[in-house]
């Protein structure tokens, strides 16, 4: 049971945001997944979208007052049974360093580790997919070794290719399509994460697991 009350705020008049109390954890995320599944069935709710230990609910219009939804969320939070999604494990072969990992040197400089150590620490864990967001098919992952955490870049790279494997602060992720990014890119993979022509357009869903496999290290 979670005793602390989650904070619920308004995102204008079309959405609400619930923040799980406490430090970011997989346990709290399982509660978020469960709450998302339940809230999705409420008649006022258009879409329930999990984030990193938080949940956004978009509402059907018109809704004369958000008070009912807020009360229901706060009541449901301690009551839901955390959902231990047992998803698929997807292995991604990664080429670390070289042209596809232009910021490896910055990560080495910040962490004081050498290439082999960074690669080993990055490829070691199984990374649970907490949520999908940012851009089509992109996965927010938990579980990165804090030893390789590296702050976001001062100015974003304007166009990073899809498949870039990057570190931003305490998080790691793989961009699903070309676009700007403020993260440090240390490698690349060729996996296709998103196909809008499919009924389930995302390769991965919350609860799935990513495992990075070292395909090659370019020094």
């Amino acid at each position: 049971m979670s005793e602390a009350v989650p904070l619920v705020s308004l995102l204008g008049d079309t959405a609400l945001l619930l923040e799980a109390p406490g430090a970011t954890s997989l346990e709290a995320q399982r509660r978020i997944w469960a709450l998302a599944r339940e809230a999705q069935t409420w008649p006022e709710i258009a879409e329930a979208v999990p984030g990193m230990n938080n949940l956004m609910l978009t509402v059907h219009q018109p809704l004369p007052s958000p008070a009912g939804v807020i009360r229901r969320l706060q009541e449901a939070w301690p009551a839901v049974v955390p959902l231990a999604l047992a998803g698929r494990v997807v292995e991604l072969p990664v080429t670390y360093g070289g042209e596809g990992g232009p910021h490896m040197a910055d990560v080495l400089a910040h962490t004081g580790l050498d290439v082999d150590e960074v690669v080993a620490r990055h490829a070691a864990p199984d990374y649970p997919v907490y949520a999908i967001g940012s851009h089509p098919g992109y996965c927010y992952l938990g579980g990165m070794d804090p030893r390789i955490a590296t702050p976001r870049r001062h100015s974003p790279v304007l166009r990073l290719p899809g498949g870039s494997v990057s570190i931003g602060g305490q998080q790691t992720g793989v961009s699903a399509s070309d676009g700007p990014s403020g993260w440090n890119t240390i490698g690349s993979t060729t996996m296709c994460f998103f196909d809008p022509s499919l009924p389930q357009p995302c390769l991965l869903s919350p609860g799935d697991t990513i495992r990075f496999r070292v395909a090659r290290v370019i020094r």
Partner: peptide, 10 residues
């Protein structure tokens, strides 16, 4: 902040 859902207008 932790990454969270946003909508146009935020």
């Amino acid at each position: 902040l932790r990454s969270h859902g946003i909508v146009p207008g935020v």
